[in-house]
Design a protein around this nucleic acid. Structure first.
Lengths: 229, 229
DNA sequence: CGTGATCTTGAGGGAATTCAATGTCGGTGG
DNA sequence: CCACCGACATTGAATTCCCTCAAGATCACG
């Protein structure tokens, strides 16, 4: 028994509206044709978007907010597989059923796309089919990269995480974390205490600055990159 | 610094033969149309099949033998992402370049398929396009399942591994491991010593039997499943 | 300003690693 | 056939890094 995590209460399981055309908006940047189908839905903080083993009839795209996907063991240990930020598409990991659960980290707006619509479109338009394949491949690469954190020390894991988050908002060297320490811990395979202590260490060594718990300044990227191995 | 692994010498980088039609053979079971294109190539034990960041012009299918895909950190720590056995297709994790390296674990025969041929086929035949997407999705699911081992104890990791391997040769409750303890360790995020000790523990508790180091009998599946959480 | 949720810090313990030595197996050559 | 060798595996002892348990600090919110 390693990490013991209190199980969160996912509370909100939406009845999904019909797909229809909508005008483009912010968060539209990852895929061409696909983003035009579907309708943005609000999800409250900690609301469940879908559950593991539920039928996977939809794909999802974050418009605003943030999402975590995760699996839990029977005893409550939780492993977060990925965080999704505005512009990201998720729900690709599914065959007939979702292989993970997904929850909104903060209040979020999410475009919900009927999978069958995408499949139908892909059947007519090979461009779309290729895009879906490519998108899934990119997700697979992301996972394979993520697995590397688990052979790293706590310092290295946290440094990798900060750099990873920083790279997702290009240019800025201030990281605004939407997720709690517990989320970070469950993403990195550490405990909340170790994450906290490690951030303090990094701050003491002047690699970062932590003005508020959710805002982190990268003061010395080379140092962090060195830890990133 | 956690696991330190001696870096293996991948030595053999094949010049790949032209794709052409060949009759079906053993190991043909995962995909319909795709397996008919390409030609089986021999790879020696520990030979490199492809390297990380090499252009990804081919897909691969194991006919006989076994393959590992992995990433290494600069200091030599290695994380194995997956093992592939006869019938399995690998190399899907690639965009333009491979995101992992791949090596033959034992002497192997591997069908090498020109990616462009698959893409061309997929462009004409939506069935094929769907199949490729589905195959990549399954790979993604496999990875997501694998990530769960990293929140488990050593006993749980080894038990999971044995059950996973056993499920890939349905029916048999004897697992014939093609890979070394080091490979297992780098797959599970443990050290070789911990893997060894854990197997001994499991044997002492009568959950398994280890007649030779590469052959493992599952004596008490319920006990192993309990550890699998 | 109290209350709960979240985060930080400390002390102590434990599981896995590290380091080191011994054991086993398969092959090769005398 | 057996002795030797190297690769691989097992076992032991000591260490370390992270976890657990516990207390206190900070923050958001009513």
């Amino acid at each position: 028994m390693l990490t013991q995590t209190t199980i969160r209460t996912g509370s909100f399981n939406p009845t999904v509206a019909q797909a229809h055309i909508r005008p483009p908006q912010d968060g539209d940047d990852q895929v061409g044709a696909i983003e035009l189908m579907g309708t943005a839905m609000p999800f409250a903080r900690n609301a469940e978007i879908y559950g593991e083993n539920e039928p996977a009839d939809y794909l999802y795209k974050v418009v605003s907010g943030a999402v975590r996907t995760y699996k839990v063991l029977v005893d409550g240990r939780r492993q977060i597989g990925a965080f999704y930020l505005p512009g990201d598409i998720f729900g690709l990991e599914s065959g007939a059923e979702h292989s993970c659960s997904a929850e909104a980290i903060t209040d979020s707006r999410i475009v919900v796309i009927k999978r069958s619509a995408v499949v139908a479109l892909a059947a007519r338009d090979n461009q779309v089919a290729q895009e879906m394949w490519a998108l899934t491949t990119r997700e697979l690469q992301r996972m394979q990269a993520h697995v590397l954190v688990f052979i790293k020390s706590a310092q290295e894991r946290v440094a990798s995480f900060l750099l990873e988050m920083a790279d997702r908002v290009p240019g800025a060297s201030v990281v605004e974390l939407p997720m709690s320490r517990q989320d970070v811990a469950d993403y990195l395979g550490l405990t909340i205490e170790t994450v906290s202590r490690t951030l303090t260490q990094l701050e003491r060594s002047s690699a970062i600055e932590v003005p508020t718990s959710r805002r982190i300044l990268l003061r010395n990227r080379p140092a962090l990159n060195r830890l990133n191995s």
